[in-house]
């Protein structure tokens, strides 16, 4: 079980490219990468999830935490390119209605 995170910054826009599995073991790693970005006022974070082949509820929890943090700090977060399995999780939990998800049905490359 492994998670790779690549970060690219263009001024106030941050891209996080995530690959691997997001579960109870790797979620803290994602949280550490994500929360400092959502804590910056006016900054935008784009999370690319096309190479995430598994995510459990702990992973969803990280995004819930990031969403709350972005609201609190006046930043924004957007998820993009998720596979249909991951997308289903966001739909079941109703989180697709509160989190900004770019509707590009991405697959694994």
């Amino acid at each position: 079980m492994n998670l790779q995170i690549k970060q690219e910054d263009h001024e106030n826009t941050h891209h996080l490219h995530i690959a691997g599995e997001i579960d109870a073991y790797t979620a803290p790693q994602l949280r550490e990468a994500l929360l400092p970005l959502t804590g910056k006022e006016g900054h935008e974070t784009l999370v690319h999830l096309g190479d995430v082949n598994y995510m459990d509820s702990t992973g969803l929890g990280v995004f819930v935490g990031a969403l709350k943090s972005s609201k609190e700090h006046g930043s924004s977060i957007k998820l993009t390119g998720m596979t249909s399995r991951v997308q289903r999780l966001f739909e079941i939990t109703g989180l697709d209605e509160v989190i900004d998800i770019e509707d590009v049905k991405g697959g694994s490359k």
Binding site: S57, G61, V64, G65
Partner: peptide, 8 residues
């Protein structure tokens, strides 16, 4: 609850 926590 903690911000990262939720319940279904």
């Amino acid at each position: 609850v903690d911000p990262n926590m939720f319940i279904t």
